Computed example of a mutant assay.
Amino acid sequence: MGVPVRYGMNPHQSASVEGGPAVIGGEPSLINYLDALNAFALVREADEASGLPAAASFKHVSPAGAALAGPIDEVAAETWRVHGVGTDSPISAYVRARDADPKSSFGDVVALSRPVDAETADFLRTVICDAVIAPGFEEGVVETLRAKKSGRFLIFEAGLDWHPPARERREVLGAVIEQDRDAADLAAALPEKSLDRAHRRDAQLGMATARYTQSNSVVLVRDGAAVGIGAGQQNRVDCVRLAGDKARVWWLRRHPFVRELPMVDGMRRQDRLNWQIRFAGAEMTRTQRTEFAGLFGDKASVRYGESAWREEWSERLDDVTLISDGFLPFRDNVDHAAEFGVGTIIEPGGSTRSDEVAAAAAEHGITLVTTGLRLFHH
């Protein structure tokens, strides 16, 4: 018999869990467990492949962002109010992961591949997140986190010696399904000398992210961070476009016009961030445009209606690596990818139109690497 949890997929469903990480704070639901388990598997694989701390921001059993430790740029530092953070620290990995798609990361499950230190715990107290999973916690950190959300913050501990079994089993509508766990060697799937060290690192991070993202999925990685993830679409080109749109908004948030939006007294950080995202991506409703003008003034309102600055800035986005969990069936995937600054594509290959895909990549000057490895996740 498993241990009862708060509820199953929905509050009207009872559920229980057997095994898995230790719960040392809060009362998780079934989805919390699913997010935590998948997220921790992702960051551990990314850490093992790179030798760097890794972090993921998970929502509804797919990552909103994933990243390796590294430099935090000025925009992320301003947004999340972190300065002087070490480039090899767990907090740098999580800030980079959360900054990719902060609209989706609101209320996420945080996964870290290294023990949570005091600096990271203090940061987690300042953002809207529901849970954290890590291989350990430095002294005093658990007490700090337990104070979050009036004691309802979820804390999972997955020890360094925790390894999922070689076989996995589930029951769906009375059918019992069992299969080997997907433990294929991602590094071995990348042909030798096909990529330099930096792009190989990005490829492996993207492949690990795709492995734990609901299929169909496409992941865009740049400088050790997934900046756009398209998940759970029924056709692949929509995955490319969704991931690309997210990456473009991430990039447009770096434009001076977005950074220069006036500060509004009393506005919360997340509310300001949401307005920046709407402004950058030109995604406001008529009602929001009226409210935006009232909050930020006529100058910002006029800039919202202009497209030239977005187009010019978007053309500067480059050196993006695209990872697809399944083969690219048509060249339109490549054509769209080129518009989002993709310079490298990693895909299984094997489509009946692989020649057309390869020709499209060559036309756009994109390096195409086929792995022969599909990474579907359901």
Rank of each mutant, 00 (worst) to 15 (best):
residue 54 A to V: 02
residue 344 T to E: 07
residue 236 R to F: 11
residue 297 G to P: 04
residue 128 I to V: 15
residue 354 S to C: 02
residue 20 G to P: 06
residue 195 L to G: 10
residue 367 T to Q: 12
residue 210 A to H: 04
residue 140 G to C: 05
residue 206 G to M: 03
residue 106 F to M: 12
residue 28 P to E: 10
residue 158 A to G: 05
residue 30 L to K: 11
residue 148 K to Q: 12
residue 75 V to T: 14
residue 103 K to M: 09
residue 19 G to L: 02
residue 259 R to W: 05
residue 333 N to Q: 11
residue 183 A to Y: 08
residue 120 T to F: 07
residue 342 V to T: 03
residue 369 V to H: 05
residue 258 V to R: 01
residue 241 R to F: 00
residue 370 T to H: 14
residue 341 G to S: 06
residue 140 G to V: 07
residue 93 A to Q: 04
residue 1 M to H: 12
residue 327 F to Y: 15
residue 66 A to N: 05
residue 207 M to R: 02
residue 271 D to I: 09
residue 35 D to L: 05
residue 354 S to A: 12
residue 253 R to Y: 01
residue 67 A to V: 05
residue 236 R to W: 08
residue 278 R to K: 15
residue 257 F to V: 13
residue 71 P to G: 07
residue 304 Y to S: 05
residue 32 N to Y: 06
residue 204 Q to R: 13
residue 315 E to A: 12
residue 345 I to Y: 08
residue 318 D to Q: 14
residue 230 G to T: 01
residue 55 A to L: 03
residue 53 P to V: 01
residue 42 L to M: 12
residue 320 V to N: 00
residue 217 S to F: 01
residue 353 R to I: 04
residue 292 F to V: 01
residue 29 S to G: 14
residue 281 G to R: 00
residue 263 M to I: 13
residue 82 V to C: 07
residue 59 K to E: 15
residue 201 R to P: 08
residue 111 A to Y: 00
residue 18 E to D: 14
residue 264 V to H: 05
residue 108 D to G: 10
residue 275 W to M: 02
residue 45 E to T: 11
residue 190 L to D: 10
residue 60 H to R: 15
residue 160 L to C: 06
residue 343 G to P: 04
residue 62 S to V: 08
